[in-house]
Design a binder for these strands. Structure first.
Lengths: 348, 348
DNA sequence: GTGAAAGCGCTAACAA
DNA sequence: TTGTTAGCGCTTTCAC
């Protein structure tokens, strides 16, 4: 018995297997890692010993020695948010195909948590990190990368060639939403905005689409991050009081569209008769709202998968950072329709 | 340069810090693990060296030597399913409080995947495993536990005292759903069942409630696991053709309630006028359906948290396995109402 | 308050 | 085809 060392594990280790099978440790290791190099009879004997003793490989020792982990990290806002949950699932599936497991880190838009988890993942020696970064700059992410842990950024274009990134073209998404309403004949639009980079890009797309059409007006209303029922209802109130009355409203996401829809209906403003409503994301509930919500779909599962593909490519010899940009897709449902031309309408 | 060893890491290690700070490795280790035992000036010197060299602890080495990991595993059906996503979040939050990270494993009701992930987690030397087990028996789970990895079972009562478990009293849930309809005055009920242990318990609850009321009839219709639109619609067709006509339908979960609701409405059967509909789970979309769905809420976030509490308690000295049973809660919304007494109604 | 030394379980270079 | 050996980076016991 050594005078040092941690609590003696009851688990059989590789040395014990070697003993029982009557071979050396390297042979056991070879049975595990290069089975073909071992003679059939020897291999069988070793495998028998493993089965008999219920051998379980020690991943920590393996990682320490081989220098490479079988885990990747996935940092996102919140797994319980269906958008991120599906993204995570895409990542998990692709990682599993590469025989990697996924550490899940919900960061909650808190920079402190992000730093904390980055550090933990780094200490863990993860094979790589998928991250939906929060906060303005990417310095801490770049530091981690500089110290040797591959990082792929999701949901934020990185511009330069410093990092791989997978993202959705939200500007296009905004354009699609606005163009849909304009094509239907709407002239007075509202964009209900939130806070955040990706949301700003949607706004830019909406603006662009409106700008290219003549005689169209866009009113922008911004609700704070994590706005509650009342704050959103105040926004609906503002929408209801706008003159001339808007006939098309674009919400920066589906989540917000729900209370907006309810607020409008409660005020006797029918959707889509009086106001056409467009969401963003195509979350599962969008299709079952009444009326079913027209929205812009971001391919979240695919985004997670693609980001993982990028991460895996980082391990290849002559890797060059690149960026994948997904195109969102307009999903037309019953919450949008052509505007009624009413009373004061001069045209037609 | 040694003739052996893995690719030389560029990361500074504890030995290098010791060198730079002019102390021994044990002192550096103490700065990390028992800061109070080190003299202030020494500690400062060591910390400076760490900051300067961008030192990151090697978790693998730590785990190998100390024998204890900072990771727990969470095995569930599918993270992209909102029920499990919120459960996972509950677990993640509680684990984070104990300074543990969470490995996420979506098992997809596939026993093979379950076995695979169990093995991987075991090799990883995780601190413990939370599992929503699939398949009939728990032998592989018990084996893992026997080899020294703590396991907590979620969503399945284990009866004996072999394992900790956290679960929801689904029998009570079934009773609540049925009793609600019975209390409203419904006499002809349908339970739309799926496959699975927890679903069977809901069924039992429904049966019990109906059995305690006189002159009430229950029809059970079962749809296969992962039923598609058409299979569910076939079930709706059967419901529509039942005579005497049922006035109350309980779906085994909210997911199924959506196509059922749509199927009923498409056939001109109004909810709740002609049929009252009850779901199960209270998923986020239940509240925004038209009409908003009466359902039975399972506290999923809390379930994840509680399971984690059980897992953490496993590490304590004189631990005894126990089981936590959550009570589900009836959430009454607009999809249920008293039945209309129509034509052939003799009573009243 | 600090240091020397042993060794966790494994892999990989090399020798046999 | 198999065995010998060194050592990954850390913690821990014990001596000073």
């Amino acid at each position: 018995m050594s005078r040092t060392g941690p609590r003696p594990s009851s688990r059989a280790n590789l040395g014990r297997i070697a003993e029982v099978a009557g071979v050396s440790k390297s042979t056991v290791s070879n049975v595990l890692n290069n089975p073909d190099v071992v003679a059939d009879s020897t291999r069988a004997r070793v495998q028998d010993a493993m089965a008999e003793l219920g051998y379980v490989r020690n991943g920590a020792a393996r990682q320490l020695r081989a220098g490479t982990s079988r885990i990747a990290g996935c940092m996102l806002f919140d797994v319980s948010n269906p958008y991120y949950a599906e993204l995570a699932r895409g990542a998990e599936d692709r990682l599993a195909e590469a025989d990697l497991m996924m550490l899940m880190c919900s960061v909650d838009v808190e920079v402190g948590k992000q730093e904390h988890y980055l550090r933990l993942l780094e200490e863990q020696g993860v094979r790589g990190i998928l991250i939906c970064p929060v906060g303005g700059d990417l310095t801490s992410v770049l530091q981690v990368q500089a110290r040797g842990t591959s990082v792929v950024v999701i949901g934020r274009s990185t511009g330069g060639r410093e990092l791989c990134a997978a993202d959705v073209d939200d500007r296009l998404g905004g354009r699609l939403a606005a163009k849909h309403l304009l094509d239907l004949g709407h002239r007075e639009l509202v964009y209900l905005a939130g806070e955040g980079l990706s949301i700003d890009r949607r706004r830019r797309g909406v603006r662009e689409a409106v700008a290219t059409a003549a005689n169209r007006r866009l009113t922008e209303i911004t609700v704070p991050r994590r706005a509650d029922q009342f704050q959103i209802d105040a926004a609906v109130e503002r929408i209801a009081e706008l003159r001339p009355r808007p006939t098309g409203v674009i919400c920066f996401n589906d989540h917000t569209a729900v209370p907006v829809l309810q607020g409008l209906q409660r005020r006797g403003i029918a959707v889509p008769r009086d106001i056409s409503l467009v969401g963003y994301d195509d979350l599962p509930f969008a299709a079952v709202l009444s009326p079913p919500l027209t929205t812009v779909r971001r391919p979240r599962y695919e985004l997670g998968r693609a980001a993982t593909v990028l991460l895996l490519s980082e391990f290849e010899p002559d890797h060059e950072h690149r960026e994948i940009l997904f195109e969102p897709e307009l999903v037309v449902r019953a919450s949008t329709a052509p505007p009624r031309r009413h009373r004061a309408s001069v045209q037609l």
